[in-house]
Amino acid sequence: MKKYKITVYDEKTGEKHTIEIEMSEEELEELAKKLAEKHNVKVRIEKV
């Protein structure tokens, strides 16, 4: 498992949230996809 920083940005409201999380790359990609689809936000992932 690796550490990642996830930034979620909502273009409508301008809200931006960043968290650090430790998980596998596959789980992370699935999480990012679900966030983007369900909440209509942009998701950026960076390795820490």
Rank of each mutant, 00 (worst) to 15 (best):
M1D: 09
M1W: 03
M1C: 10
K2I: 15
K2E: 11
K3H: 05
Y4I: 07
Y4H: 04
K5Q: 09
K5G: 00
I6A: 00
I6G: 00
I6F: 02
T7I: 08
V8R: 00
V8M: 07
Y9G: 00
Y9Q: 05
Y9F: 10
Y9A: 01
D10E: 04
D10Y: 07
E11D: 08
E11K: 09
K12T: 12
K12M: 13
T13S: 06
T13C: 04
T13L: 03
T13V: 02
G14M: 04
G14N: 05
G14H: 05
G14P: 00
E15S: 08
K16W: 15
K16L: 14
T18N: 03
T18E: 08
I19M: 11
I19N: 01
I19D: 01
I19F: 15
E20A: 04
E20C: 12
I21L: 11
I21T: 04
I21Y: 05
E22S: 09
E22V: 09
E22R: 05
E22Q: 07
M23K: 01
M23I: 14
M23T: 08
M23W: 04
M23R: 01
M23Y: 03
S24I: 10
S24D: 13
S24L: 13
S24F: 12
S24Q: 08
E25P: 09
E25Q: 12
E25M: 08
E26H: 13
E26D: 13
E26K: 09
E27A: 12
E27T: 08
L28S: 05
L28A: 11
L28F: 08
L28C: 11
L28Y: 08
E30M: 13
E30R: 12
E30A: 10
E30Y: 11
E30T: 13
E30F: 11
L31E: 02
L31I: 05
A32L: 15
A32R: 14
A32W: 14
K33G: 08
K34Q: 09
K34W: 07
K34E: 07
L35T: 02
L35W: 08
A36Y: 09
A36L: 13
A36H: 11
A36M: 14
A36G: 12
E37Y: 02
E37N: 10
E37P: 03
E37V: 08
K38H: 12
K38V: 10
H39T: 11
H39Q: 09
N40E: 06
N40M: 07
N40L: 08
N40G: 14
V41S: 08
V41T: 10
V41I: 11
V41R: 07
K42D: 06
K42E: 09
V43G: 01
V43W: 00
V43A: 05
R44L: 15
R44A: 07
R44E: 09
R44K: 13
I45F: 04
I45E: 01
E46Q: 05
E46V: 09
E46W: 00
E46A: 05
V48Y: 00
